[in-house]
Write a protein that binds this DNA or RNA. Structure first.
Lengths: 214, 214
DNA sequence: TAGATTGTTAATCGATTAACAATC
DNA sequence: TAGATTGTTAATCGATTAACAATC
């Protein structure tokens, strides 16, 4: 546990590397050095080498990294090869947009269920998956393995639903509701706080305008 | 600049404080100590006091913080009081979902334009704003102040569009495209990388399953 | 006043960067 | 071989936590 513990700061950067290497591959680039990578990604070469070495030596002295190989290795680390089942809880604007978002499939995430409280939506189909009554959630979770439950419900409904989802067997929560879910520390949660992101922009814009006054 | 520079790590936490204090206010809570806050938000009291003190002493020894006052002060720091104009560039699933998302208005962000390349969408109206031809962007930007341009276009279109948007006067970019935009360092950019977020979940799920095998 | 809790300085911890020997 | 670039250790930097005097 202590030995192979990888800092969150490192994990956060892996998808960036992965994405960029994918693009290089498409362009037919075969090798790249940490120095070149660092220039493209606007970080230090040291950090890239340090990061990658947490997982083993993927490079070769005097040569650099083989793009395809590194891409695959990072893919393995991120577990992109495995297929994941996803459900979407809350079929409002955001929920529907997620259900429609085809790129998830490219990363092996497959929407197998969509749920809402609104009867008007029941039976409506998005990319072949029909929206069900949220009351069917518990039943659904006993019958299917759910790796990710995307929570796109109003904030006040989120904490209880999240707790239920975990109780009923969802392996992780992808939380879009603007609340800090208080779940047991061993529950996997990824927060996407759009309003927080927007408020950081707001802060920077505000700072910017103050600077300009001075 | 050096003196009043606030670390990004601090800024990142402000919206969390703000959001939580808002909820406390709704519940009629009048005062709170850093200790209580720290328990609710799962961080140390020290960090909260340290963070807040970057901006001045909002608390009172022996008493704690006045919820309403602190909420307002953080609001001011974040610039939530100011009204912001937002446009949405790319009216696909995500773009439309953002245009429909009413909570932005609560934080004083107002959608004043939506743009796409697809002629079928032209004239369609979302919350009173009609979708326009993306060719009208430059013109639009000369006529309106745009604080935030939300970029919800396919990744290959994003870098060039982002550069144009900045050139034409957009003050900041809220980037949802899965690319690292390389823009001049003084350009304000907030990235929302949904796939990256999902891949971190994927990583954690993968780790979890490895642990369970052992 | 006594108790509580801040504001703030000092200590610790962790993450990033620099440097360089190993080696392709 | 000589040049390039990694893997890895050591140095630096920054962020978090602890501690406590100030003070409400």
């Amino acid at each position: 546990m202590k030995e192979n513990y990888i800092a969150m700061a490192v994990i956060r950067r892996l998808p960036t590397y992965y994405r960029f290497l994918g693009r290089l591959m498409e362009q037919g680039v075969e090798r790249i050095s940490s120095k070149e990578l660092s220039e493209q990604l606007q970080m230090t070469a040291s950090q890239i080498r340090q990061d990658l070495n947490h997982f083993g030596g993927f490079g070769q002295q005097g040569y650099g990294y083989n793009v395809k190989n590194l891409y695959q290795e990072i893919g393995k680390i991120l577990g992109v090869e495995e297929s994941h089942n996803m459900i979407i809880v809350g079929a409002g604007n955001l929920g529907q947009a997620l259900a429609n978002y085809s790129s998830f499939a490219k990363r092996n995430f497959h929407v197998i269920g969509i749920f809402d409280v609104n009867p008007k939506l029941f039976g409506m189909t998005i990319r072949g998956v029909s929206i069900q009554d949220i009351d069917c959630l518990q039943q659904f979770l006993t019958e299917h393995t759910v790796d990710v439950a995307a929570l796109t419900v109003p904030w006040h409904a989120a904490p209880e639903l999240a707790a239920d989802l975990v109780k009923w067997g969802a392996k992780s929560i992808w939380n879009f509701a603007p609340v800090d879910l208080k779940l047991p520390p061993d529950v996997l949660v990824e927060n996407v706080q759009l309003l927080d992101s927007l408020m950081r922009l707001s802060y920077s814009l505000h700072e910017r305008s103050l600077e300009e006054e001075a």
